[in-house]
Nucleic acid binder design. Sequence first.
DNA 1: TGGAACTTTTAGACTAAACTAAATCTCTCT
DNA 2: AGAGAGATTTAGTTTAGTCTAAAAGTTCCA
Lengths: 218, 218
Amino acid sequence: MNSQSEEDYLKALYHLQTESNSVSTNSIANYLKMKPSSVTDMLKKLAEKNYVNYQKYKGTSLSKKGKLVALQIIRKHRLWETFLVEKLDFGWGQVHLIAEQLEHIKSEELIEKLDVFLGNPKYDPHGDPIPNKKGRIEKMNQKLLVELHQNQKGIITGVKRGTASLLSYLDKENIKLGDSVKVLEVIEFDGTFIVEINKRKLTFSEKICQNLLLETYD
Amino acid sequence: MNSQSEEDYLKALYHLQTESNSVSTNSIANYLKMKPSSVTDMLKKLAEKNYVNYQKYKGTSLSKKGKLVALQIIRKHRLWETFLVEKLDFGWGQVHLIAEQLEHIKSEELIEKLDVFLGNPKYDPHGDPIPNKKGRIEKMNQKLLVELHQNQKGIITGVKRGTASLLSYLDKENIKLGDSVKVLEVIEFDGTFIVEINKRKLTFSEKICQNLLLETYD
DNA sequence: TGGAACTTTTAGACTAAACTAAATCTCTCT
DNA sequence: AGAGAGATTTAGTTTAGTCTAAAAGTTCCA
Ligand SMILES: [Mn+2]
Ligand SMILES: [Mn+2]
Ligand SMILES: [Mn+2]
Ligand SMILES: [Mn+2]
């Protein structure tokens, strides 16, 4: 059985590693708000358990085994987030910290039953895909709004990582995941988009468009 | 913020203390499957935090403050148990260990929303009352089946503490909390009860009757 | 190519929560 | 009253997970 701390490290590794590249000790420390020396200690332990490939001074990557564990924690995190928003009526912005705790509850059966109860959701409330029991993630055909041209349409599926305040903004504007967007016009001068959502005409700054994820149907 | 361990000790104190009597170090150790010396350490810490009245060699009792914390953990435990049984379709016997973890999740808002989602239940799946936000418990008019006489009726509300196997038996016999019971006959010779539940005639041994709790309507 | 700057690891310390073994207290019974 | 049994506490150890400070390794540029 893995400790809460070990699980959080594995999850951090997963989020930080881009395409088979190894992760630096400092970046993990920064991500988890811990000191690099603490990270080194934990990496040694995780290496001992064969969850990571760790070589002094050379960086760390998840092993196959470690990646699977990470994906299972992420699965739990996202299913709980879905529960909190769909069933308990929390807002998008409120659920992360609670799910950060709930993801560590130990019970295979619990998470499978929760999955069924929620209707086997594919995406969490932030539009992130929910891995299945085996750790498989369904790839989405996601684009940023900024990549669309006039008259193209899409469905809002989420925002880029680390832009929680954009979520709040959307909330305030009464825009939800799943809403349809049509690009009415792109202002060349400053990259502003004029879009239609729920029959309302809205203006999005370039920055918003660079962070808003859509699923497009071609 | 209290640790998981502190919360489990306070809960143990609550369950062990009968009517203003203080609790022995050994009984806590026994209840929590820990060594008495470990318990002493924790009691000192809880006394420091004014959660308990502890005097060397003299036993321990919950302070008002400590009792309130204990009741809030118990509230969470029982609400989560209710969730697991009512919404996720767990059986009575499966939920305790999971709730033992869930009860430690930190979020006022979570538990209030869960309460609403469940329809503000009064009793958990084992028939135990769920304290409200302020720690108030509604007193039930509970009797043991063995206390009833011929022709009296009641509603099954639970079983006595520590008789989980009776729960399993009831499950197997397809008897649920909330089912009505009517005493048809009491056999004087061996204390056996002949009762009617769901239009079925059943025979309960004296031991069963000593452990089955009913709410009676007079 | 040799340092300075940065990154990473090591060494040592601390805290929480458990344990074992030994000391101390209390209670009861003769 | 005193002794023994049992309960409880104290003292010292352990493990996990964190930290600070110092040592060691790596990078990169003048
Ligand atoms: Mn977490
Ligand atoms: Mn999410
Ligand atoms: Mn617990
Ligand atoms: Mn219960």
